[in-house]
């Protein structure tokens, strides 16, 4: 792949794409190349949402995205908590609500919600936030506590 856009930024740091094969999924770049294993692989077919990351602030399925397709973009993963206010806010709500069991689905849920907060603003309603979670599956089926976390974020139970 040639062209001007030869890198992505991941959690603020530039990652050159020259050595990344053209067919590599963003998910594999994050996990295997950069060691950012917080982003999970559940299905690799777009069905589970475990691989959700933010690309320029929007939630995206990293398993169905080629790394080169987001050249020039800012990618945020669960490891970016702290410098990212929305990721942080959601993470704290998950902690307070105890919204995780094994935790495998958690990074995807957190990033999907953080993306919704960025899109819809801090006043996003519980309904708007829940709708944005329709593509995230929890194999421990711990949804009740996740819904409680959404209530904490929205400031009102759904």
């Amino acid at each position: 792949m040639s062209g001007a856009e030869v890198s992505i930024r991941v959690n603020g740091s530039p990652v050159p794409l020259e050595t990344v094969p053209d067919d590599e999924r963003l998910l594999d770049t994050l996990r295997w190349r950069l060691g950012l294993t917080g982003t999970k692989e559940g299905c690799r077919t777009g069905d589970c949402g475990a691989c959700t990351v933010l690309v320029d602030g929007r939630s995206v399925l990293a398993c169905l995205t080629l790394a080169h397709e987001v050249a020039g973009s800012e990618v945020r993963t669960i490891e970016s908590a702290g410098p990212d206010p929305e990721v942080d806010r959601v993470r704290h709500a998950f902690e307070s609500a105890g919204a995780l069991q094994c935790g495998y689905c958690t990074p995807g849920f957190v990033l999907a919600l953080a993306g919704l907060l960025k899109e819809r603003g801090p006043g996003a309603t519980a309904d708007e936030l829940l709708e944005g979670l329709q593509g995230n599956l929890c194999r421990c089926t711990g949804y009740a506590s996740i819904v409680r976390a959404v209530g904490l974020i929205a400031g009102a139970p759904p």
């Binding site: 949402g49 929007r58 939630s59 995206v60 999907a112 993306g115 919704l116 329709q134 593509g135």
Partner: peptide, 9 residues
Amino acid sequence: VGSVALRHR
């Protein structure tokens, strides 16, 4: 169509 994250792409 799919989920929000799917519709972003």
